[in-house]
Design a protein around this nucleic acid. Sequence first.
DNA 1: AATGAATGAGCTTTCATTCAT
DNA 2: GATGAATGAAAGCTCATTCAT
Lengths: 212, 212, 212, 212
Amino acid sequence: MGVKERKERDRQEMRDQILKSAHQLFLEKGFDQISIRNIAEAIEYSPATIYLYFKDKNEIVHALHQDGFKLLNQHFQPLAKFEQPFERLKEMGKAYIKFATENPGVYELMFMRSEPMEHVSDCLDEEWREGDRAFEFLVETVAQCQSQGYFKGLHPHSFSMMIWSFIHGLCSLRISQHLGHVKGARESKISLDDIMTTTYATFSQALEKLKG
Amino acid sequence: MGVKERKERDRQEMRDQILKSAHQLFLEKGFDQISIRNIAEAIEYSPATIYLYFKDKNEIVHALHQDGFKLLNQHFQPLAKFEQPFERLKEMGKAYIKFATENPGVYELMFMRSEPMEHVSDCLDEEWREGDRAFEFLVETVAQCQSQGYFKGLHPHSFSMMIWSFIHGLCSLRISQHLGHVKGARESKISLDDIMTTTYATFSQALEKLKG
Amino acid sequence: MGVKERKERDRQEMRDQILKSAHQLFLEKGFDQISIRNIAEAIEYSPATIYLYFKDKNEIVHALHQDGFKLLNQHFQPLAKFEQPFERLKEMGKAYIKFATENPGVYELMFMRSEPMEHVSDCLDEEWREGDRAFEFLVETVAQCQSQGYFKGLHPHSFSMMIWSFIHGLCSLRISQHLGHVKGARESKISLDDIMTTTYATFSQALEKLKG
Amino acid sequence: MGVKERKERDRQEMRDQILKSAHQLFLEKGFDQISIRNIAEAIEYSPATIYLYFKDKNEIVHALHQDGFKLLNQHFQPLAKFEQPFERLKEMGKAYIKFATENPGVYELMFMRSEPMEHVSDCLDEEWREGDRAFEFLVETVAQCQSQGYFKGLHPHSFSMMIWSFIHGLCSLRISQHLGHVKGARESKISLDDIMTTTYATFSQALEKLKG
DNA sequence: AATGAATGAGCTTTCATTCAT
DNA sequence: GATGAATGAAAGCTCATTCAT
């Protein structure tokens, strides 16, 4: 009995290792520098081996895509403990930034490229469950904020879109290396993290002012 | 003397023609679909000819990058006529969206990819002049808004960063095809343009509320 | 003792099952579409298992080759009942056509490819017994026809070769899909079976005229 | 002026060289052992170079296919001088055999494989002109034989099909190496050429007897 | 006896780039 | 000034085969 289970576990471990390597390569080399051969080299296996665990390159990308959303939701999980919705909202932003900053390659894959979307768009809605969950969490939190007097008169869905746009913009500018090239940031030696923190703080202040 | 100058002029014309074609291709195909052969075919010259005018593919990308910023500034030019800074600010957003929507390939190249940045970062600050101009225009406008009572107590540079993050986030989500996949948008048949308009309107409303 | 024999029997059964699946695959897919994996999948065993029963792919092909000849002879078996040799000869042709048409993949393997031959040529004459039987049956029938006044003055072995060439030509043209591409057949919508029947009938008529 | 022409000639020579090598490889290795890499190696160029002269592998196969038919017709050309149709018919057979024997690889490609057919079948009828010409030449010759009293009462098209089947059968058995394995031929040390000659002679005799 | 895991060698194809002409 | 010709390097992928378990 144990044998079968161990095999299954080994198999899963190998899949994970492959995905982890791909993940790592995204980080180092960027989305289109990734190749089956690259991954194979990284895990020190032959390219053919990859195909024992994934049907094709697409399936790898797909898996990373889904794993990415799961991971994002994991970053959101601890936020439930914040009872004040506005507090929670602000923490969500921080968690999102943390996720993007720590997993730039996967973030790129999830939100900054159109290629994966073309494949994924054929999929069942089911595939989007994790992605939906994340967004719904945001919408709910916004709605709760409104019931406490924030963002009065604004549509919660649209306002959530706005928030997401901002935070995605900030994260993606960082990942695409544009953050450090803005006039002002370029000259002074401010760290990228500081820029993000400052910008996010500004956004938070603005949100705060939208109360009442 | 005249000969030398004419030659130089011819050379510049050829460079422009190549860039124009590349720009056009970006419009149709997107960043990774572009190739030297593609461009050569479009201008009806041989691939080898391109190398007479550009050292390598990077140099083309680089040039497009710079031209892109010029083009963006051209979109901003007519905004000078808006005397009310807040009006001007809102129009800037629209102009930015227009630029991004009409030149998705170039936008992708300018703001959504890290590869070009890596090459550009070695360059002189001089290279960034056009980019800086665009951002400074935003900062100035924000500052003028503040002198009229908007965004009180917020740092103009940071607030500009926030605005840019938002608008870039919105545009890049559209270009990367993610806009249509958000829960809600996916089911209803809202057009992407409508989503952008709505989200931007929400943002404008929010900004408006930050007066006083 | 019994154990050893049972094992041997089991082994033989497995070999047969593998061959049967391969045969089936040939029927559906044709010579080059076949792979060890294909066969393994069909018998629901792992590819590695196949190597327990056959040294390599060649050995499988070889075995199919031999089985093919057995099957061909089985098609000939019922012909013994035709007492008139010329009738029997004509029925042999029909039986051959039936065999080829119903087992195109195996026919291809047996008669249309050189690869298998290269391996087989090292083999003992013994290996050819079944093949020889089939041809000898033809030669005998021809000889009997001659004793009834047909094909006078023609060498039976050569005449048999001639007959085989014709019938093989007809069958192989069909299997290689050339039959439908001849001028005339291509335009009209005659079925391949009709072309074969007609051509064979013409041949029969010609043979008939060679009497006396 | 001469430059352009020379270039064109060089280009044609290269194409020919590639085709010749492919032709040669067919001969040595058989149809499916052929690969772009193989050909490239044979002509001592890089694989990529092949793609400068042919769009893809298919185009090479296609070209060989067409060239083959042209070559076959060239073998038929000198036969016009035979005024007696029956003589011409017999010479046609010999010419066909000569063509097949000297170009086994191409013959295999032209008549013994189904893969090329699948691609070619989509083509215009125009593509088949050369093939049609060859077959029509046969039908005409048969018809002329009939006007001289041969093959009375037989349909010329069907009878031509019969002749082609025979001669193709004979040639293809030789090419697929089956000719030497027939009982009788195997034991005695008769050369393959002798077998072919003898079998063809027997066929000729039979045809002769179909007069009157 | 059976197999999961692994791989080397092979495939077709594309592309940025160089260089002799 | 322009290019046809050539290529090295890389891509995704498949398959027959081996071997430890």
